[in-house]
């Protein structure tokens, strides 16, 4: 008895040690990036005793904007992410409502067609998508950056699943009271699905904020770049110096990290959901 108790506590101690060492290891690059952004330009931050000791400064945040239009990139990223999120919430909830609560011919086929989209990775369509956008003269425009983020079927499927769980009696009752199809959508279904809308919205926002491949392919004008496209270019021009690229990276990461810390539960649920639906 005594022996097994000792053994349990030993394995407990080892589990604690392993999990906390791994946690520090995992956080370390982010902490290093954050600290480096506040070091005077040119500091050799790879020497950790330098990186984690004073002096600290906020000068880098203004120096980066003299070297490249970093805050224009930030504005572009924010504008696009907000526009994408609002449009996605609107069109996916409309489509999901239709698929879930309305009756029409071809509904089953539509559902299958939309589910099929899950199997089309953007990587497989970059060439024709580029050609299509070029034909429509949408390269290097906000519209051209926004559109490819609006076609993901996952949001529709998540919203549909939620609408499926809303009791039909609720909708019947509203109909008897004289509410029309549109009214039922916006004054009954939408308010009740606040949580799902939040999950889809948060997910869409961070995905758009971090989106790399399409903006990287389609933007050539420096003024139209988003942060994920601007960062490699900025860093490529400043490889011998760590603090400024780290500052740009930090600026680019703050919104995603803040959103993550506030909505951690929804984000993690969302990830679990994408995997299950995937």
């Amino acid at each position: 008895m005594q022996h097994s108790l000792k053994q349990t506590s030993l394995s407990r101690v080892l589990t604690y040690a392993l999990s906390y060492i791994l946690a520090l290891l995992w956080l370390f690059p982010i902490v290093w990036m954050t600290v480096s952004a506040f070091k005077p330009m040119g500091s050799p931050v790879s020497i950790l005793s330098v990186a984690f000791a004073p002096p600290f400064t906020v000068e880098n945040f203004s120096i980066i904007s003299q070297k490249a239009p970093v805050y224009i990139w930030t504005y572009n990223s924010a504008y696009i992410a907000i526009a994408v999120t609002l449009i996605v919430l609107l069109i996916t909830s409309m489509a999901a409502y239709s698929l879930s609560k309305l009756h029409f011919k071809g509904k089953k086929i539509m559902y299958i067609v939309i589910t099929m989209g899950l199997m089309i990775p953007i990587e497989a369509i970059i060439i024709p998508l580029y050609k299509t956008m070029a034909d429509l003269r949408l390269l290097n425009t906000y519209t051209g950056l926004i559109i490819p983020s609006l076609t993901a079927p996952l949001g529709v499927l998540i919203m549909k699943q939620f609408f499926d769980d809303l009791p039909n009696e609720l909708i019947e009752a509203a109909r008897i009271d004289g509410a029309g199809i549109f009214r039922i959508w916006y004054s009954i279904c939408m308010p009740l699905s606040r949580n799902s809308l939040a999950a889809v919205g948060i997910f869409t926002f961070t995905n758009s904020w971090n989106n790399f491949l399409w903006p990287f392919l389609s933007i050539t004008s420096e003024k139209m770049m988003t942060l994920p496209v601007g960062i490699p270019q900025f860093q490529g021009a400043n490889l011998s110096e760590f603090t400024l690229p780290m500052t740009v990276s930090l600026v680019a990461s703050i919104p995603a990290i803040v959103v993550f810390l506030i909505f951690q539960k929804q984000i993690i649920q969302g990830v679990a959901m994408t995997g299950i639906k995937g």
Binding site: L22, L24, I30, N210, P228, M246, S249, A256, I257, I268
Partner: peptide
Amino acid sequence: RTAYFSSYVLSMSVVTGLWIF
């Protein structure tokens, strides 16, 4: 959980930039 998951919310460019350094 926060520590293990937080890197997942970073952008591709931030991650590669950091690991280049």
